[in-house]
Simulated scan of single mutants.
Amino acid sequence: MTTTQPRASIDLDARSVTRTVRVAAGPDAVWRAISEPEHVAGWFGDGCETDDGGPLTAGTRGRLHFEGYGWFAFEVTRIEPGRLLAYRWGQSADEPERMTEAEFTLQPDRDGTYLTVHETGFSGDTEDDVRTAIDGNRQGWDIELDELVAYVEARAW
C-alpha cells in the first residue's frame, strides 16, 4: 500500500486546488472507484446517488453525501472513460448555486496509476470567503484522496 502522498496545493489567483496521488493499482480499478456510484460512496463521503441509478456518464446528475455536511448536487460535465472525469458540484449544501468543477485525470504508471484532481471555480462574497472555501476543499482532498488510495489498494479488482 502507498504510504506517503504529497498534500494538495492551492493557487489563490486561479482559485483552484490540485492534488496528485499514486495508487498501486491499474487504471481500470481507479476508474471504477471514481465512476461507479457504489465505489464512489466507499471513499468519497458516505453516499453517492445518480438520478437515473446508473454509472457516471456525461450529463449525469446526482448527489454526494458527507456526514455532518449533508447532500451536495453534482453534474458530470466531461468524460473520457478510463482517462478523465469532470463534474460540477456545490461548494456548500446551503448554497448549491455556488459550483466548482472537479476534474479527475488518470495516468498509467507501470503497475500503478497517477490520479490528479484539479478543482476550480471557487467563489464567495469576499476574498476571505473564497480563501476559506479553497482551504476547506484542500483539506478535504487530502483526506478523501488518501481514502481513495486505501479503498482501491485494499480490493482485488
Rank of each mutant, 00 (worst) to 15 (best):
T120L: 06
T57H: 10
S9V: 15
M99V: 15
E38V: 11
G62H: 06
A156Y: 09
E153M: 06
A14Y: 09
C48L: 07
R7F: 11
G121T: 07
E101D: 10
T77H: 08
G112E: 03
G53T: 09
D46A: 12
G121C: 07
R7Q: 15
S16R: 05
A154N: 08
G70H: 06
V149R: 00
T116C: 05
S92N: 07
F74P: 00
Y114R: 13
A58C: 09
Y87G: 03
V149S: 00
T113P: 04
D11W: 08
E127I: 12
R155F: 04
A14P: 06
A93S: 15
Q5I: 14
E119C: 08
A93R: 03
D125H: 14
I143E: 12
T2G: 03
T100C: 15
H118V: 13
L12Q: 08
G47P: 03
D142K: 05
A58K: 13
V76E: 03
W157M: 12
G62R: 01
P37T: 09
P55M: 04
F104N: 02
S123M: 06
T2V: 12
Q107P: 04
A154S: 15
W157E: 11
I10H: 00
E103G: 09
V17L: 05
G121E: 05
Q5F: 11
W89L: 04
E119T: 08
D52I: 09
E95M: 11
Y69F: 14
T3W: 07
T120W: 03
P55I: 05
A133G: 05
T60H: 03
Y69R: 13
E144L: 11
D13I: 15
R15F: 08
D51Q: 10
V149H: 00
E97P: 02
G112R: 04
R110H: 13
R19E: 03
T126G: 04
P55K: 04
L64D: 00
R110E: 13
I143L: 13
T100Q: 06
G90Q: 09
